[in-house]
């Protein structure tokens, strides 16, 4: 059973309300939103293991604060897709605008096309896999989590980076302040392979094609006892 709702005939507020009603008890698992037309704040604040497809382009902050849900956007996404996601997965079939996955704590964000500027800004534990390129200042002030870029990274990658790890397959236009290339360890290879597998790219890209970048730990007031194991 699939519940299909059109945003031509229902307001975003109404549709989000129906989705939130599933938070207490899952009664309808499969949802489809049609005619999104770039509207903002679609499927924000989900907290249930439901499956939702958005049949077109989404506007700002789509699937923001997501918990548990599996959201697929069949088009492109505007600013801040999956911002502050806690868990679950969000997949964008097209491109994503700037600040994709901003401040997200957990879950998996997959962008099959390109991501705009500041992808993964201030990410706090989310995993982001981008099939194409990322825009300038991606990984800006990223604190934890993994960003995998299967294409190229634009200027100032990882500026003012904390402890997130950034994997890039293609070229890096320039590194931001305090971001440096690290040696790829066997543990890195393993986690990268897992991420590519989770994102559906296991047979598309090989881990040896990637380089890994991290914080040089010279910029912020770093205290070793506040960090996880140094990789």
């Amino acid at each position: 059973m699939m519940r299909t709702v059109s945003l031509e005939t229902h307001s975003v507020r109404q549709v989000n309300q129906w989705l939130h009603e599933q938070n207490a008890k899952l009664e309808e698992e499969n949802w489809q939103i049609t005619e999104p037309q770039g509207r903002h704040a679609l499927a924000c604040g989900l907290d249930q293991a439901l499956k939702l497809t958005i049949d077109g382009h989404a506007g700002y902050y789509c699937a923001g604060m997501n918990k548990q849900a599996e959201v697929v956007i069949e088009g492109s996404a505007g600013v801040g897709v999956a911002e502050n996601m806690m868990s679950g997965t969000v997949r964008v079939r097209g491109n994503a605008s700037q600040c994709a996955g901003a401040t997200a704590h957990g879950g998996l964000l997959v962008i099959e096309g390109d991501a705009g500027a500041r992808c993964g800004i201030a990410m706090k534990g989310v995993d982001i896999v981008v099939g194409g390129n990322v825009g300038p200042m991606s990984g800006f002030m990223a604190q934890a989590g993994r960003l995998v870029v299967c294409g190229n990274a634009d200027e100032a990658l990882g500026d003012s980076l904390y402890e997130a790890r950034l994997y890039v397959r293609g070229t890096v236009e320039s590194l931001g302040a305090d971001c440096e290339e690290k040696n790829m360890t066997p543990e890195d290879q393993t986690e990268l392979a897992e991420l590519l597998h989770a994102a559906g790219y296991r047979n598309t890209f090989r881990t040896e094609e990637f380089r890994v970048y991290g914080s040089a730990r010279r910029l912020y007031n770093f205290q070793i006892d506040q960090a996880g194991p140094d990789r």
Binding site: Q37, G38, R39, H40, H57, G59, Y60, S76, G78
Partner: peptide, 8 residues
């Protein structure tokens, strides 16, 4: 400024 304006 936003895709919404182009959607139609």
């Amino acid at each position: 400024s936003e895709y919404r304006a182009l959607a139609h």
